Simulated assay, not measured.
Amino acid sequence: MSNPFGTEITPEEIVDTLGFFDSWEDRYRYIIDLGKQLPEMDDAKKTEDRIVKGCQSQVWIDHWVEDGRIMLNVDSDAHIVRGLLGVVMSAYNGKTPTEVLAFDIEGFFEELDLIKHLSPTRGNGLRSMVQRIKALAEAHS
């Protein structure tokens, strides 16, 4: 099964790693680095049907099903948003539709202390990304 990071990065590892940093500036750098590890999306895939509405930046989510698991390819025109997509990918990529729908993403965001450190529009965009992925999971369940 393909993994966007080349190695398995779990939500727990992201929580642990972010816990090492004292400042949110350092945490933002780590999140941006997560985004840099994501594979580039082919420009031909950056189509209107893959764009996520409700995001301040442009965000595209492509998906396919492989061995009953939802595989995601994501991109954004903003570095921090690519990083946030990396955080979301750790929770959802390569999971079954049932696992995607069962994952407590709000609890994960709370554990990261993430939402309150984002602007309201960025937080809404993050939730729009999650809603899109959950809708894809529902369509395949």
Rank of each mutant, 00 (worst) to 15 (best):
M1Q: 00
M1H: 04
M1F: 08
S2H: 07
S2G: 06
G6T: 09
G6N: 05
T7I: 07
T7A: 12
E8A: 13
T10A: 05
I14T: 01
L18E: 06
G19K: 04
F20L: 13
D22W: 08
R27E: 05
R29Y: 13
Y30N: 02
I32Y: 01
D33V: 00
L34I: 04
P39R: 08
P39W: 08
D42Q: 05
K46H: 13
E48V: 13
E48N: 12
R50K: 15
I51N: 11
K53F: 08
K53L: 13
K53D: 15
G54C: 03
S57P: 07
S57D: 09
I61D: 11
H63S: 14
W64C: 03
W64I: 00
V65A: 11
E66D: 14
D67A: 12
G68Y: 00
I70W: 12
M71A: 12
S76N: 09
D77Y: 15
H79G: 13
I80E: 09
I80G: 10
R82Q: 09
L85H: 04
G86C: 06
V88P: 03
M89G: 05
S90T: 05
A91K: 01
Y92F: 15
K95T: 01
T96C: 01
T96M: 03
E99D: 13
E99H: 03
V100H: 06
F103Q: 04
G107H: 08
F108W: 04
F108N: 02
F109K: 01
F109W: 03
E111L: 12
E111H: 08
L112Y: 09
L112F: 11
D113M: 10
D113G: 14
K116T: 12
K116L: 12
H117C: 07
H117Y: 12
P120T: 10
T121Y: 10
R122G: 04
N124G: 03
M129I: 07
M129Y: 03
M129C: 15
V130A: 04
Q131E: 14
Q131C: 04
R132F: 00
K134E: 08
K134H: 09
A135D: 13
A137P: 02
E138M: 06
H140S: 05
H140Y: 04
S141E: 11
S141T: 05
